[in-house]
Simulated assay, not measured.
Amino acid sequence: MAELKAKGMDTPLPDGWAVWQLTPSKYDPTAPDGARGGKMYPCLKSPPMLDFDDEGNVYCPQDSCDTVLYINRSTQQAQQLEVPFPERTAEGSKFPKMAGDEYRTHTKKGGVPYSGSGYPRITGPAIATAPNGSIWMTLLGTYNSMVRFDPDPSKKPILYEFGGPPWAVNLRLIHLTFSDSKYADGVSRIYAIASDLLDDSAVNSVVILQFKTEKDRGEQFKTCVGQRIIPLPTQDCACHRISFVDAEIADKPRRSRSIVISEMQSSKLLQIKVGNVLQTQRVIEKISTNAEGFEVRSYTLGQDEAGLQV
């Protein structure tokens, strides 16, 4: 720090957060407004990731708050979007105590608090756009839940509660990627990872979610029909990121398709070939509406006589 200070580069800790938009050719480090030739969109605490929809609008979770920053590309205006949370989470969580009521940074109009008790009420950290244009976000503070934003911004986001088997109750989803039905296996999937990064009781796992293939592009990645949970061979590894790889290999008749997972605590990369991961366990879907008017899709595992069938 002393060396940085001597060079005039001792940057103080931030006292605010924002999303910075910049056209590289307009970069100006001397701009008087401090935006260095770009535009600053102030946001709430700790924006970890962002992604864009097909129209170039921005969705940005804030993993110390319970809303999502939305930036409209056309109007260049930002707003906070309310998102649904589960009504309750599993008992006995060892999630840090700091992630409690202080994260309830927003209430409905009139000061009425939200009825959901999924703790902590934080958004993200991961958010990503599916091949059909829908936007999916993990909810690290809950168990095996995500939120789907429709490509049509007039529609409310949907809460997905995927559940899981008794041995994998504590699944805290931290990142996700997609496999489209255009690939050889003809299925639409989300590959997510659950991590113990902030919860020692959580299981490090790959969560495979298979979706019904729809002719209507807007309806793709909407109805989950199968789930498979694969515990990672290295537990206590704080798995952190997942990526889907579809590669053409010379002299091979089939493309090589894998997921690659980073294990931060163990300093490893795990590769899983998914070309032969063909089966998932059938799930039963229940659609309801919560007290805030959000659609909730909850899933329980079906009993397949022949095992994993979907």
Score class of each variant (00 low, 15 high):
73 R>I: 01
20 W>K: 13
105 T>M: 02
171 L>T: 02
180 D>T: 07
124 G>Y: 10
31 A>V: 00
83 V>L: 06
246 D>W: 03
16 G>V: 05
171 L>H: 06
300 T>Y: 01
144 N>V: 07
238 A>R: 10
84 P>L: 13
224 C>H: 06
210 Q>D: 15
136 W>S: 09
12 P>Y: 09
88 R>H: 04
24 P>F: 06
106 H>C: 06
154 S>H: 09
197 L>K: 02
297 R>K: 15
31 A>G: 09
13 L>P: 01
120 P>R: 02
225 V>S: 03
40 M>V: 07
67 T>I: 05
258 S>H: 11
191 Y>S: 05
2 A>W: 00
33 D>L: 05
222 K>C: 04
309 Q>A: 13
258 S>V: 07
224 C>M: 08
226 G>M: 07
121 R>A: 15
151 P>R: 09
118 G>N: 07
220 Q>M: 00
210 Q>R: 07
276 N>M: 09
228 R>W: 11
83 V>P: 13
239 C>Q: 05
144 N>T: 10
248 E>F: 00
254 R>H: 08
38 G>P: 03
281 Q>N: 15
265 Q>W: 07
18 A>E: 12
131 P>F: 04
302 G>A: 15
57 N>P: 10
21 Q>W: 12
10 D>Q: 12
28 D>L: 01
289 T>Y: 09
50 L>M: 14
54 D>T: 12
202 A>G: 01
118 G>C: 03
126 A>D: 02
103 Y>H: 12
270 L>A: 08
158 I>G: 00
93 S>A: 07
197 L>N: 01
175 H>Q: 05
2 A>H: 06
305 E>G: 15
240 H>N: 13
111 G>K: 03
107 T>R: 10
142 T>H: 14
66 D>F: 05
110 G>E: 08
297 R>Y: 13
137 M>K: 04
175 H>I: 00
248 E>S: 11
262 S>E: 07
110 G>R: 11
171 L>Y: 00
159 L>D: 01
145 S>T: 14
100 G>E: 01
6 A>S: 15
94 K>Y: 03
100 G>V: 01
6 A>D: 12
300 T>G: 12
210 Q>K: 07
111 G>R: 05
287 I>L: 11
196 D>P: 04
112 V>A: 10
35 A>C: 12
246 D>I: 00
216 D>Q: 05
218 G>L: 11
297 R>L: 09
145 S>D: 12
109 K>M: 05
254 R>S: 00
94 K>I: 00
310 V>E: 14
235 Q>N: 04
268 K>H: 13
41 Y>N: 08
270 L>C: 06
207 V>C: 00
310 V>W: 08
256 S>E: 12
161 E>K: 07
95 F>M: 01
188 S>V: 04
109 K>H: 04
71 I>M: 05
86 P>Q: 10
97 K>D: 06
297 R>P: 06
78 A>D: 10
178 F>S: 08
116 G>E: 14
155 K>G: 13
65 C>S: 13
211 F>S: 04
259 I>P: 11
188 S>A: 11
